[in-house]
Design a protein around this nucleic acid. Sequence first.
DNA 1: TAATTGCGCACAATCGTTTGAGCAATACTT
DNA 2: AAGTATTGCTCAAACGATTGTGCGCAATTA
Lengths: 337, 337
Amino acid sequence: MASKSNIFTIASETGYSVSTVSRVLTGQAEKFRISKKAIDLISETARRLNYQPDLVAQTLRTKQSRTIGLLVPGIDNPFFATLAGIIIKLLGDRGYHTLLADSREAEAEEEQALQMFLGRKVDGIITVPVSSSAARLEQISQQTPVVLIDRHFSKTNLPYVCTDNYVGARMATEYLLQHGYKRILAIQGVRSSMPNQERLRGFKDALKGEDVIYEAVGDAFSVENGHDEIVRAFGGNGSRFDAVFAFSATILLGAIDAFRELNIKVGEEVGIISYDNNGFLDFLDPAITRVEQPLREASELAVETLFSIMEARREGRSEPEVLQRLIPPTLVVRSSC
Amino acid sequence: MASKSNIFTIASETGYSVSTVSRVLTGQAEKFRISKKAIDLISETARRLNYQPDLVAQTLRTKQSRTIGLLVPGIDNPFFATLAGIIIKLLGDRGYHTLLADSREAEAEEEQALQMFLGRKVDGIITVPVSSSAARLEQISQQTPVVLIDRHFSKTNLPYVCTDNYVGARMATEYLLQHGYKRILAIQGVRSSMPNQERLRGFKDALKGEDVIYEAVGDAFSVENGHDEIVRAFGGNGSRFDAVFAFSATILLGAIDAFRELNIKVGEEVGIISYDNNGFLDFLDPAITRVEQPLREASELAVETLFSIMEARREGRSEPEVLQRLIPPTLVVRSSC
DNA sequence: TAATTGCGCACAATCGTTTGAGCAATACTT
DNA sequence: AAGTATTGCTCAAACGATTGTGCGCAATTA
């Protein structure tokens, strides 16, 4: 009953027309020379009737929903959950709401979500893409601004904010080398994904010319993958490897678990280093040395970028040029290697 | 350009009226005796023009958005992230989208989010409430179905699905007793919250008549709280306690950290048991014995409940009666006590 | 006094759908 | 052959807002 009041109710209640009411309520009063008397009466009445604008009607008319579509490949993954949390907050601060969808690493679900975003008339899209091609997103971005985060495509002019996975992996690998490890096993995540490729490249480049042996196995950002690859590599009689580079925190967990099963002491018998931030890595024993990504900074940059594009388009300006950012990660040293 | 086609485009393209097009596209064709010829032509044209209905316009007209508002107190908390992930998936399976908001444990932000949900005409709301009173939500639920999850209010007829925190805490405490612990420290979360109160009640009831000493300290579901209370209780020369019951996984982490600082061996010198599910509790050393909440089951029940109410209201039926569910948690035994 | 200007507001179209009511043509009845 | 049913569709009014245009009136100017 409270929310039954609309612009028309207020109009008849105050005796003014709906247009006047609308202009007052949208803050266009002085632009249209509405009298102070009218402004006061209308605002007061709106408050009294507990008027809440119908955002759906507003959107239909104005083509602006003050909503951003956020698409991640798995909200149950702490990494994306943290990311989503930060972004939702940042958008909220700017008066925008978030329509969250989960592609579950599947292209079909990604496409569905994008359709939905467009149908819902979101003002912009922030996404961690899962599809292998940028084509669809590039097409969409002509209509609705799109900013990629965490993952990007090799040749695309879509704006993105990613951490520099190449540098991160290089840092991690060099750290292992400096500490005397000579036989390194890398466990990868989804191979087709850009972060994984970059990490692999960084890993290999760091090893170039070094007197070490190495191998890069695995194919998923999952606990199981970490577990299975460790069992495979360390399960037999002894192992060729003295250190492990886990390409994600989930992989790391699986590895830790496998080492425990195999009764191999992490930090002593084998060194281990991981990618990803994740507060609880500090609570493992030993605490895990890792490459952390500046999630907050990345999120802020992504949101900023998105809004600058939105603003530019709204004002018919050409879009800013530098829209692809690679930000450097940080090495957090603990005691696992 | 692709998405510029609307129902009117299709109408003029096919020569039929917009009403006919609409009825075909919404599957009401035979109900209105549209000819097969018309159906075929219209569907074919829609496909050819890549028609996507404007969900905003649809919502305005039908008052149904096929969207559910999901409100959690902190999406960056793994517990709620997991919950959100499950719920988003379940809703997606039923053809519904999710508008996600984060109240950050603040009443003001909760209220804002609820306003937004109503303005957006969500068809239903699933929320982990943070406010101390049920009043506002009860008011809203007359307009839009509301289901509480994880937390509820003591006397309310709002439907909810929570785990039985009383039983869970009792189970945990009894487990400690059975294993010979005699001096138990409980570290609480937010005292005003229903889950905390229930856990405390379960804890105390389990100890009734037993020959043990105990204390319940702390006041936040945070790592710091866990840390500080352990330091306070175990920091001096020896401690009165031989076991700790952490009321949440965050508290547990703080405790683990503090024990490490104090050089006290968990599992040997002190037993510890925790609340909350959290996959990584298995990766700590020792793995933590804990009370897990059946998140999936709870989510399914909550979604089911919400839809049954929505359906009942749509059909003008009276709403189902039994809508408040307390589901039993599970004791997951590991090696920390 | 008549023409001009500015002020304060109202009219009505519009956004893209859905939907109750109605209407012309054909088919069926008796 | 005239009346009734059925078929297959169209008309136009909503939903709740925004917004370009225009109009009556008073104050100012000529």
